[in-house]
Nucleic acid binder design. Sequence first.
DNA 1: TTTTCCATGTAACTCGTTACATGATTTC
DNA 2: GAAATCATGTAACGAGTTACATGGAAAA
Lengths: 179, 179
Amino acid sequence: MERELLLLGLLRQSNMHGYQLNEFIEQNMSVCIDLKKPTAYALLDKMAQQGWIREFQTQSGNRPPRRTYQITEQGEQQFQRLLRENLAAHDTVRFPGDIGVAFLSELPAAEAILLLKQRRDALQTDLEAARAVPPHGGSLQLIIEHRLYHLETEIRWLDSLIDKLNRPSTESFGSSQMK
Amino acid sequence: MERELLLLGLLRQSNMHGYQLNEFIEQNMSVCIDLKKPTAYALLDKMAQQGWIREFQTQSGNRPPRRTYQITEQGEQQFQRLLRENLAAHDTVRFPGDIGVAFLSELPAAEAILLLKQRRDALQTDLEAARAVPPHGGSLQLIIEHRLYHLETEIRWLDSLIDKLNRPSTESFGSSQMK
DNA sequence: TTTTCCATGTAACTCGTTACATGATTTC
DNA sequence: GAAATCATGTAACGAGTTACATGGAAAA
């Protein structure tokens, strides 16, 4: 439901048509959500059918008419509900990269270290990109900080893992058992 | 491709039938992956068609025959490839909960704090559950540590956010702009 | 004997993505 | 007149989930 929440939240600030919404999300929200155009259009349709938003044609100049959306009273209530739901809950995050880690012992330590260093580089690149984002006003700044927090932790964890592989003194975790 | 990697990795250790694989994953890997039965069966079918694994009937007692799978030479090569790919890459994590944060300023501060504290409680519960997991041997331990690392960071970030809301001294980030 | 566990699936559905289609308008 | 950008979609597909169907075997 984050997608609906996002669209409602944006339409609450001002009426917009699909293209505007897509552009805004791409340019400003890409840090935290990846919402493609067809998905957005489909969602707007669905929400209009549910009565959360209403649609009307707008003409500007001699351009073809655009579908502009406006949040309804019902939509406002949904926004309030979804916002509270989203803020109060915590969604478990899964790391696909952990599967590889589960089979780390199947590789010679030297190669494992090499591969993890590649992962580290990728992370570092992401981190620098996040650091380079010019400071946004308002809540967006919070989200960028969240990202920094997270990426820094990931790097620290990876480093500790690489470290462990470098000195397998205390009984290298072998192919012993995964049970 | 993590799912394929996981199944191949398990079949590498011993031949198994679908039910065994599902059980093992549920009991031991639920921390890092959520693979439902129908998905696993479908994946096994697909991999058998691709020649990564081969299937044969096994009979035990007077039970109905089971489809037991064995990794092939080709499957072993895929495993090696997928493992390296997985270890070297880093997948960007998205936090659906950030969308709510983006609209935090739409709520009275007191309520925002209350909701975030609920989120904190949920996180804390997860963290304690992760801490309570009895130490596993081998690589599984690494994944549990990863989870701990991550959850602890999330809590710290949330705390810093709640803190910020508690003292809006330095110009509370208003509904100013999200642009 | 009824419930639980073993064992394998199918069918329908949801959600989201990619690739494609269309056409008008502004800019070079 | 060509290219970019504005604007809206559709169609096909893919991945994964839920709910359901089936049936034998073991345990209560």
